[in-house]
Nucleic acid binder design. Structure first.
Lengths: 113, 113, 113, 113
DNA sequence: GTGGTCTAGACCACC
DNA sequence: GTGGTCTAGACCACA
């Protein structure tokens, strides 16, 4: 996996996992890889994966069965959509519109409306 | 000026200056404030401003006349537009579109097309 | 390490590192000292080393693995040779030849040909 | 006149003048331009020219007749040759040879011997 | 542990 | 006056 320069790796992995849930590549209640396994797959320190998992656990997108592993929460997909929609509409969209205006890019040029 | 938590101050100032150039509040070939002056205006250490100016000089958006000060490059506005358009269309837009698709947000809901 | 008066320390260190790579004292993909470590070795502030490393990273002679350290780029040696050869042949050599001509110094006097 | 980035302007002008004397474009005992005149010709602050002239006066390459102007010293050419030869052979040549060796450039490639 | 950013303050060369 | 470099020391996020 390739990482963006200026965003924490653990957050990028976190987003990647959310995408897997949104596309239903990972399904509700499914067990996800252990920190060591995912770490070695991605070429990343297991501590970093642990941090990702903690972060997702705080958001109640995954949960931990001690001694067993981490599992996708059963309402994970809905939760992600709710969180990300709110964040997108509230924080990101205004910045996008502002930037497009300054750069003279019209929505009709880049979106199919 | 108020600063966002998780982005370096020197970059935020840099973006702020680019906006000033885009809106033509600062014009081509115009002298911009000295590092000390801008620093005290913004309540920021002159070294931090220096860093901003180095960054903008690398992008050839401003240039330095030794012993005199920094000046807006004469093609600064075009350069900023070119750099930011390219970055937006190439890097940001695909992510935005993907995210909107995954979240089920239609362009027509949020943009005036 | 001893430093020349009229050239910035961070650049002198940078040149020193390039020599280490050229002579293969530091090899491709090898980890180089942390900013603190090299700083204390050379009796120089870590910030100054940081500046050196930023400079070399811009030239893509070293690169950074986050949280781990800086590494010699795998094509660093070739890159240095290319950059320095070009600079020497294009910028320095003409001046040298001109100066030798004006001063009446013949190449055969000072070089083994 | 165009100036190199990292060398003081007053020294670059100084070298330029030495060249004029070496090529005998400016001859012994000839009056040279006033600081204001040369300054406006080169697009440079007169103070900077003054510094150049002071520097050359210290080297006894030019001298000042008060109220009249600056003049090329009558043995200026010999003096410049002596100073620059020594400096070239002692300081610059060893660095040049070192660099050429490291970069694998042979004298016979670049000099007519 | 690593780099990265920031501050405060100093000193310098240069214009 | 200007920028440029350097130090000392702090704090932080990240791996």
């Amino acid at each position: 996996m390739e990482f963006n320069e200026h965003k924490p790796i653990y957050l990028q992995i976190s987003e990647n996992i959310c995408e897997k849930v949104l596309t239903e590549e990972w399904q509700a209640d499914e067990r996800i890889p252990s920190v060591r396994e995912l770490g070695s797959n991605l070429g990343v320190n297991p501590n970093t994966i642990m941090r990702t998992y903690e972060h997702l656990e705080n958001l109640e997108i995954i949960n931990n069965k001690r001694g067993v592993g981490f599992f996708v929460a059963n309402d994970a997909r809905e939760k992600i959509i709710r969180i990300q929609r709110e964040q997108f509409l509230k924080d990101e969209l205004p910045l996008i519109i502002r930037k497009m205006t300054l750069l003279g890019i019209k929505p009709s040029e880049v979106f199919e409306c």
